[in-house]
Structure formats: C-alpha cells, structure tokens
Design a protein around this nucleic acid. Structure first.
Lengths: 199, 199
DNA sequence: CCTACCGATCGGTAGG
DNA sequence: CCTACCGATCGGTAGG
C-alpha cells in the first residue's frame, strides 16, 4: 500500500502495485481501476506508464521467473556435492518467495493467463527450472548420496511441490527466517517421515 | 464438453460445466455466457437452474470439500497403524484428484473468491483436513514408526504440499493409475531422497 | 496525471 | 430455455 496523494509514481511502482493485486485477487479479479486506486490515481492514468493490463502481467511474471532463474545460476556456479547444490537451490527458492512473494505468487498462479507467446516463454523457463532439479537428483544418485532407485523426473516434481506450495502458506509476519524454513524443507526432502538425525 | 443442441440440462450439468470452466480459466475468468456456451444454451438461461454465479462457485467447491472430507472419514474408520492410515489418506486424496479434477482444482485455487461466510466454512473444512494429517503424524511418532523429532504441524504442511500440487501436474491422459501415483508419493513422503527399499 | 468519453462485456431480470 | 433488455463495470483512448 502506498500513501495516496503523494504525487507522481514511477513505472516500477505501477508494476509493483499490479503484482500485489494480481497475487491477492488474481489477474481477472483485478481491474486497471483497482491498480490505480492502490497508487492513488485513476485507472486511465496508468496508460501513461504502461501499454495495457496484459503488459503488467507479463512484467510481473517475467520478474518472478527471472528471480527463480537466477537461483539456478547461482547454485550451479557455487558447485559442491549434489546434496550441497540441492540445499542451495532450496534455500534460494525460499529466499525468492520470502523476498518477492507477490511476484512468486503471480508467477505460479497466473501464468496461464499470459498472452500465448509470453506463456510459452515462461513455461519454458519453468521447465528449465525443473530440469535443474532433475539434474541435481540424478547427480546425487550417481554420487550414491541418494537412493539408487529414485526417478529423477518424479522426484523433482515432488520436491518442487513442497517448494511451490510455500506461496500458499507463507505469511510475511511469520517468525521463521528463510534459512530456517529451507532447513526444515531440506530435512523433509532428504528423509521424509523416517527422518534421520542430521539436524 | 457436451454436444450442443441435445435439449434440456439438469442443474447438475450446470454445476459440472461451471466446475470445468472455473478449473480451467478461474472464477473471474469465466462468465455466465461461457458456462452457457459449454452447455449449448444462453448465459441467461442458467438462471432457471441456479441463483447466480456465486452459488455455482459455492456448489462446485462444496462438492470438492465434501469429497476430501469423506476420505478422512473413510481412512479413520479403516483403522490400522499410523503408517497404514497415512497410506489410506494419501491414496484417497489421489483418487479424489484423479476422479474429480475440476472440483479439486476449483476447491484449491478459487476458494478465496467465495462469499465471506462460505469461505469461512470451507477454510474450516481445510483446517480439519490438515488436522487429520497432524494427528496421524503424531500417532506415528508415538508408535515410533516415524522419527521422534518430527514437528507434526510442519510435516503435515509438507505432505499436503505434495498432495495438493497434484492438481497442477496431473493430466487425465497420464498412464499411471491413482494407486501407482499414491505409492510413489508415499515412498517419497516416507523416506525422501534417502529412500529405503520398501518398494 | 486528469477530464471526458468509447464500445464491449459483465451479472442479472421480466416475461413468455 | 429464449427474447429482449438493464445498469454497472470493463480495458482502453483523445486531448490536454
């Protein structure tokens, strides 16, 4: 929320406000007038900053996709064992959700409403993200760190299920830090209910 | 999809068509005219079957909530060890998603758009669902089947994350049966990446 | 960034 | 279930 009547906004303010509302009410549940209200201006005034509502969706989601993509780049560059790389991937993912909840939620919930070409681009980025998990799982199996009978594709989906669900339950007022959340997730992912004592 | 022009529809047809479209395009992305098209009639004709669009959302989601609620009743009635009960809960959940994908997706994605009173009721049902998982996890810890340091509340969220994400990746054309999917999920939930060999 | 406005579409109703 | 329609709201534009 922004104090109304404090004058001109930047284009970034408009995109951020759109992200907030798209995350809360969904793309189709948000009108240009709603976004204007959030910024203390009229809906029609937004058109001096952006081309249209679809462009706002593309920008919010592209920002989310870029943040998650950067996590893969950083985690890969850091190197280490498969277990270490997986921990870096998970921690990076949690940090993005904690630090950019609106973009993460819009990215994961509203991508289906993107214009066709953008949707294809974003889905391809999501596939790449999943591939990074498949690769690190396969590496861990090869290193004998993970169980030999793991199916990397299925396991990647299950791990990403735990990570992606965070946009559903995470609240910024929560007391746990990103690292604490990531540690709990890693412990569950590593050992499930038969958790060993590597805390 | 229903062949157009085959005459009168029942109220259940209308609710089912609404569920299909709400699941696909979201509540706010679906118009009454869209639902009419799906049934080969006008949007205005729907009002001889239902009171309005909100009522359709309430009915679709209530149906989904009831299906998931029944899984808890059945799994609890079946008894058995905590591990057996958990397996029954997971299998029941997967069966609901496989058999009623539209209602499950609408239930999990669109509940926030419910009228306030209905939303509270549905959220309470979701909380009860989560409680069933917390209880069976706590029982498993008490029975010494699960690791002693498990946090039932956190673990329930992680398990339900894997289950709920199914509405995102499951496609009816997939080759795996509900039981096969449930088995893979149970294996991951039980042992994570360090999966032991209880397949 | 506002004023003033556009055509299209929305959820919904009256009457048959 | 259709015809014919309602007021409200939608995304967006022209001009300043």
């Amino acid at each position: 929320m922004i104090t109304p009547g404090t004058g001109a906004r930047t284009r970034d303010d408009v995109v951020a406000a759109a992200g907030r509302l798209f995350a809360q009410r969904g793309f189709h549940g948000t009108s240009m007038r709603d976004i204007g209200d959030e910024l203390g201006m009229l809906g029609s005034s937004l058109y001096s900053h952006v081309d249209g509502k679809n462009q706002l969706l593309v920008e919010v989601i592209s920002k989310g996709a870029a943040l998650f993509g950067q996590v893969v780049v950083d985690a890969t560059a850091a190197g280490g064992s498969a277990e270490e790389q997986l921990r870096n991937l998970v921690t990076g993912h949690v940090r993005v959700v904690v630090g950019h909840l609106d973009e993460a939620r819009t990215f994961l919930n509203e991508a289906r409403f993107l214009p066709p070409d953008d949707r294809k681009r974003i889905i391809a980025m999501r596939d790449d993200y999943q591939s990074a998990y498949r690769a690190v799982i396969a590496a861990g199996v090869a290193e004998d760190s993970f169980a030999p009978d793991l199916d990397p594709a299925v396991t990647a989906i299950f791990i990403l299920s735990v990570l992606n669900a965070m946009i559903r339950w995470y609240r910024p007022c929560g007391r746990r830090s990103a690292v604490e959340i990531a540690d709990q997730m890693c412990a569950f992912i590593a050992n499930g209910l038969h958790r060993s004592d590597q805390r």
